[in-house]
């Protein structure tokens, strides 16, 4: 069982540069063909400063900032038990290639389900760009199966 003492735990903020090649790789993986996601020249022609990061990209920054294995070891758990329950995004501004995004992550709740057979660990995450603008915040529900 995960100790509820972890509620309120703030992980050290991490700042990550959004790389153009990574966004191209991601677009290719997803079968994305729209130029603003795949072609820096098309993005510039559309008036954007660089390739646009897709809507689920903040979650990728969340796990870039804190590897799943490291996150789970803080909780005293193992990866075999982990499932993804929910992922919720609020968007305030775009993320582009070349941006420098600071990720802040906090454990805001730990909830026992089914008499402790499952535990939900809720993490609230915020993403701030190099201009000090919060571009997104997210809430992740990590599910741990104890049986």
């Amino acid at each position: 069982m995960i100790d509820k003492k972890h509620i309120g735990y703030n992980f050290t903020p991490v700042t990550i540069t959004v790389e153009e090649g990574r966004l191209k790789f991601l677009a290719k993986t997803l079968g994305e063909t729209k130029g603003i996601y795949t072609d820096p020249d098309a993005a510039k022609a559309a008036g954007l400063p660089g390739l646009l990061a897709p809507p689920t990209f903040p979650f990728m920054l969340e796990i870039d900032a804190l590897d799943l294995v490291d996150f789970i070891s803080v909780l005293g758990e193992t990866l075999e038990k982990l499932l993804h329950g929910e992922e919720n995004f609020n968007y305030y501004a775009p993320i582009y290639a070349g941006d420098s995004i600071t990720v802040r992550k906090k454990i805001t709740d730990i909830i026992d389900k089914k008499g402790g057979a499952l535990q939900f660990v809720i993490s609230d995450n915020s993403f701030t760009n190099q201009h000090g603008i919060i571009v997104a915040d997210t809430r992740t529900n990590y599910v741990f199966r104890h049986q």
């Binding site: 897709p54 809507p55 499932l83 329950g85 929910e86 992922e87 919720n88 968007y91």
Partner: peptide, 12 residues
């Protein structure tokens, strides 16, 4: 356009 998207909540 992606700029129109304000929230996106997923339950697996």
């Amino acid at each position: 356009p992606q700029s129109a998207l304000r929230s996106f909540n997923n339950r697996f």
